[in-house]
Amino acid sequence: MKSKHDDEIKALLMYKQIPPVDEEEKRELVHKLKAYMPVSQAAPSKIMQQLIQKAFTSIYRDHKIELFVLLTFLLLAYSFMPASDVWIVIMSTSPIPIFLAGWHLLNGQSNDMVELELTYKYTFHQVLFSKIIAIVAWNLGIYSVALLYLLGIKNMDISLYFFHIVILGLTPIITFSLALLLLSIKYRRETSWTVVILTWIFFVLLSLQTPLGTFLIEVNVLFYVLLNGSLVLFLLHRLQHLWRTERLSDGIL
């Protein structure tokens, strides 16, 4: 039932008086806003492609000597490793490119740098996204070359054992890609990455000196396939999230 107050309240609330607005303020605002005019951007997929390509080539341009030394080291290690230690050499050396690239990435990524990058044409997250993809691609590339070399020099057959070793070597690459991504977003401190590398060295030592190594190699290959699959899915999910992360975070988007 409508009371007599309903109309009264609505009539009262409809009543409005606009406070005077300073026209000069509006002109000043328009002038100020010119500095914030959006730069017209290409389609996201095109930007993504451009950025990844750029990150990929810049790794080669800036670190070609390191890459060459690393590849030589890997090929030498693969040439002279004892047959019994093939798996541990492959597993322990496979994530080295990611360790080096990760160190470079986090070393130049202080909060000041992030502030600076936020003023660039691309967002910090877009740049980070492309760098991570490029680093993983480089790591997988180097790993593939080393494996092909292994097939050539050791006359290893493409058997289940070889497949097992390949999968085992992929596990740290994917794990550390994910760790690098999470650490770059959350901590942005090179000490965290150094701690990860240090613990990896002790993991390798543990695998050599304790039954842990045998235990790991004896785990069914399907477990590693599943583990890697889940890690890849999680990595892709985080990367997708990173790409979509907006520049502003005050709840207006």
Binding site: P38, Q41, E246, L253
Partner: peptide, 9 residues
């Protein structure tokens, strides 16, 4: 200002 910054998204 915020509106303009966020407009591309």
């Amino acid at each position: 200002i915020s509106m303009l910054k966020a407009l591309p998204k």
